[in-house]
Write a protein that binds this DNA or RNA. Structure first.
Length: 356
DNA sequence: TAGGCCATCTGGTCCT
DNA sequence: AGGACCAGATGGCCTA
């Protein structure tokens, strides 16, 4: 590896050229194959190059003994020390450019990382995974534009995860607050697990005729595993507290394609789960159409406020967004030694602290 | 310890 | 001639 800087080399070349002009310097070998022999005896960089060149030629010729036919065409320029130094300088400059080019490419990738889901400064996605995730993200967004419907979080996560490594898939699941197992193929994810983790909510026969699906980034919580009650008409002006559903940050997407973010809230009346269990970590149970998920914490109400802003004014005024519970911890079945499933009520139970 | 990821160097090719 | 781009080689670091 050359130790001299580019400017040092430039100075050296200048001096060598002066010497050459003055005829004080010996000329090098004309033979192209020994380009680098001249003036490189004590140069690690050139020795390495010679080795590589020799190796390359041997590979080309089959054996070192084999003679190569004499080359035709114009004679190569004589290799002088100045020319050699020039070549070396050119190589160094090319290396610097190449390094900068790659840095530019990496900077662009960093910017891309910030624009795909699951951005983390500490746990950076690899280059290839960033590109794959970006591709999937674009496809997913294009699909939303095409259909005009917001997909449920699982479908969305699955779209994002296509072709990704398991690690990245886990990251995507984590970012979307889903259990990574929900992104596994059916074969790798048994029905009982699905039963426990699936987090989509379809409500095909709402009383007003709209097919409603909850596409939730956050689990729906209910107090006791009863099937959530859906309001007769989401636009009937009823205050949200009227709806006997546990607090949930969610989106309700009627099949007609009208997306209306909404937060249910009945926490202000009573906290149905507060009295349910002494174990605070088991306070809430997320309910999906036929599946349940537990959640255990109460977070700030920022996201619910965001949703409230999108509500009709009549509903905004009656909306109390305090104490909105959300699930941000998920149970891995491996972590549940004594899980009990009640398939009739679609409830799960455990006595251990199952939350991460 | 093997494999994945990365930065860097390098020579080849194309273009200006 | 020189710059941009590319792909192969190599060695270092990290992690399962």
């Amino acid at each position: 590896m050359p130790c001299k800087s580019i400017s040092d080399l430039e100075k050296e070349i200048e001096e060598l050229e002066k010497l050459e002009v003055a005829g004080l310097l010996e000329e090098g070998n004309e033979d192209d194959s020994s380009d680098l022999d001249e003036g490189s005896e004590n140069d690690e960089y050139d020795l390495e190059k010679q080795k590589k060149k020799k190796h390359k030629n041997e590979a080309k010729e089959g054996s070192p003994e084999q003679k190569t036919p004499k080359k035709r065409g114009p004679k190569k320029k004589k290799m002088t020390k100045a020319r050699l130094a020039k070549l070396r300088l050119r190589r160094m400059k090319a290396n610097t450019r190449e390094r900068n080019r790659m840095h530019g490419l990496n900077d662009a990738l960093d910017i891309l990382r910030e624009h795909v889901p699951c951005y983390s400064k500490t746990q950076k996605l690899s280059k290839i995974e960033t590109l794959r995730l970006a591709r999937n993200y674009i496809s997913a967004l294009a699909e939303i534009l095409k259909t005009g419907q917001k997909p449920d979080s699982i479908s969305f996560a699955k779209s994002l995860s296509k072709g990704l490594s398991q690690n990245t898939m886990n990251l995507v699941a984590g970012c979307l607050q889903l259990n990574p197992r929900t992104l596994l193929p059916e074969s790798a994810f048994g029905k009982p697990y699905q039963f426990y983790y699936n987090n989509s909510f379809d409500y095909p026969n709402s009383p007003n005729g709209n097919n409603i699906s909850f596409s939730n980034s956050f689990p729906i919580c209910s107090q006791n595993g009863q099937y959530p009650q859906i309001p007769n008409d989401l636009d009937d002006g009823q205050p949200l507290s009227h709806y006997p559903l546990s607090p949930v940050h969610n989106s309700i997407v009627p099949s007609q394609g009208v997306s209306q973010p909404i937060c249910f809230d009945n926490m202000r009346n009573t906290s149905p789960l507060q009295a349910q269990t002494a174990n605070a970590s088991l306070q809430y149970e997320a309910v999906t159409s036929s599946y349940y998920m537990r959640c255990d914490n109460v977070i700030d109400n920022f996201s619910c406020n965001m949703s409230r802003a999108a509500l009709p004014t009549t509903q905004q005024s009656s909306f109390n967004s305090t104490a909105v519970p959300e699930c941000n911890s998920y149970v891995l079945l491996d972590d549940i030694p004594d899980i009990v499933m009640d398939t009739n009520s679609h409830m799960t139970n455990t006595s251990s602290n199952i939350f991460i």
